[in-house]
Amino acid sequence: MTRYILGRVIQMVPVLFGVLLLVFSITNIIPGDPVLLMLDVKYSEKEYKEMQAYLGLDKPLYIQFYNHVKGVLKGNLGKSIRTREPVTKKILERFPSTFVLALAAMLIVVIVSIPVGVIAALKQNSKIDYICMIGAEIGISMPIFWLGIMMILLFSLYLGWLPAGGRGEPPDLLHLIMPAFCLATPYMAMTARLTRSCMLEVLRENYIVAARSRGFPEWQIVLRHALRNAMIPVVTNLGLQLSRLLGGALVIEVVFRWPGMGALAYDAIMERDYPVLMGVVLIVAVIFILVNLVVDLSYTFFDPRIRYDTRKG
C-alpha cells in the first residue's frame, strides 16, 4: 500500500511539470501584455523597457520558464504583477473559501442525490421515478451561470431571502446556500442518475435474490447488500466530480462574487496577472491529483476485490 502511494506521488512530478509548461505557454500565447497594463496610457519606450525588466519579462521565454520552475521547487510561486504580493499568500487567503464552497456543494450532492437515486431505482417506472429523473434532466441541462443569475433574481432581488453575493462579514451559512446549491446542481443530477442505474443493475444480481431467500427484510437488502456494491462506480464518479467542481467553482465564484481561488484566477486573467494565474492552476492540479489518489484508495474499502499490494490471500 505504501509502495503504491509512493509510486503515485512520484507520478505527480511529470504531470505537474506538464501543467506548468502548458499554463506558461498559454499565458504567453494569448493576446494581452501585462507590461502595458502596468503603465500609464502615455508611456515612453524607456518606461516600457524598465517595467519589462522589473517584471522579469525581458528575458527569453525559456529563462522565464526556468526561473518559474526553480521558484516553484523552492515553494515560491512568484509575485503578483499587480500588487507585488507573493502569489502563495494570495492563494492561501482564497483557498479556504473555495474549499468551503466545494465541500458544501459535495455534501449537497451526496446527501441529496444518493437517496434520490436509490428511491428512483426502488420505485422504477413509478411517478416518483419519473419526477426524480425529469428533475435530474433539467439539472444537467441548465448552465450553472444562468441558474446562478436566475437564483439571484428570484431569492435576492424578488424575494429578498438570501444575499446576492460575497461571503458575509464574518462568513456565514446564509451566504453559502445559493452558491453551493448552484454549484452542486449539475453534479446532483448526474450522481442521482448514476446511482439509480447502478442500483437497478445490482438489484438484479443473483446475490440479491439469494439474500432475499434468506428472509432478510427489504431495507437490509437495499442498504446492506445492494447499496455497497452500487456505490463503487458512484464513488469513482464523485471523485472525478470533486475535481471538476473546482472548475465549476470558478464560474460560480464570479457570479456570486465569492472570494475564492476561482475568482482570483478570473481576476488574474482579466488583469493579465500571469504569476497568480499560474499559481492557481498549479494548486488546482495538485488538488485534482490528490483527490484522485484518495478516490482510488477508497475503492479498497468499497470493493474487497481491489488490492493495491501483491499480498498473497
Binding site: E205, N206, Y207, V209, A210, G215, H225, R228, F302, D303
Partner: peptide
C-alpha cells in the same frame, strides 16, 4: 429458516463485498 434455497451459480450468488 423453514425453507432454504441454494442456487445454480455459487460465484454470483455470494455478495462480493
Amino acid at each position: 429458516k423453514k425453507i432454504s434455497m441454494i442456487f445454480q451459480e455459487p460465484s454470483t450468488s455470494m455478495n462480493p463485498s
